[in-house]
């Protein structure tokens, strides 16, 4: 009963702040709303008996990635976006395609019942996750690592392009 109250409270928070991310005009408020939504999501993990995932959710998404987002938004000092002139047909097509996508998503989730708890006891402590990452799934894990490394190197090369040689390293 207590779990249910907590779930609905934080589910409401997550949904409200997620809506705020896309509906609010101010980019900084949107970014902070996304942080709140991530935080509410972390509570869901706690309710699912996965405190490790909850902590990682806050550290990685709310603590690291969103700090970077807020940093960039503030650095560029984005103010209220000027409303671009859009044709009614563009707006109409936008609404129709997103509605179609949403309906398709809900239909397939219900049809194939993706949302189903796995059988057996649910273990998600640090030890279990470490074992599965470094034993069962070592190859995909290493592949993702190399992909990320390539992305970092690519970003560095792109940011260096156009700068004169011998320029001060950032």
């Amino acid at each position: 009963m207590f779990d249910l109250i907590v779930f609905f409270f934080f589910a409401a928070i997550a949904v409200i702040f997620a809506l705020m991310v896309i509906l609010h005009r101010n980019p900084v408020v949107g970014a902070l709303a996304l942080v709140a939504s991530f935080f509410a999501l972390a509570v869901m993990y706690v309710l699912l008996d996965a405190p490790f995932m909850a902590a990682l959710q806050v550290i990685v998404y709310a603590g690291a990635i969103m700090v970077l987002f807020v940093f960039v938004i503030m650095l560029l000092n984005l103010q209220h976006q000027k409303e671009e002139r859009t044709r009614p047909i563009q707006q109409f097509l936008g609404f129709v395609s997103s509605a179609a996508f949403a309906i398709a998503l809900v239909y397939y989730i219900i049809k194939f019942s993706v949302v189903r708890a796995a059988s057996g006891p649910f273990v998600s402590d640090a030890r279990a996750i470490g074992h599965s990452l470094f034993e069962s799934y070592i190859l995909p894990f290493e592949m993702v690592s190399i992909l990320l490394l390539a992305a970092i190197v690519g970003a560095l090369i792109l940011s260096q392009r156009g700068q004169s040689k011998g320029a001060e390293q950032p």
């Binding site: 900084v28 902070l32 942080v35 405190p51 490790f52 909850a54 902590a55 990682l56 806050v58 550290i59 709310a62 603590g63 690291a64 700090v67 807020v70 940093f71 503030m74 402590d125 640090a126």
Partner: peptide, 24 residues
């Protein structure tokens, strides 16, 4: 809690929002 130290790092990483938001 079983993830005590991670919880500390998680909450400590949120403290920057106070400073950043105040500045903005």
């Amino acid at each position: 809690v079983s993830v005590g130290i991670l919880l500390i790092f998680a909450l400590a990483s949120l403290s920057v929002y106070g400073l950043a938001t105040a500045g903005w």
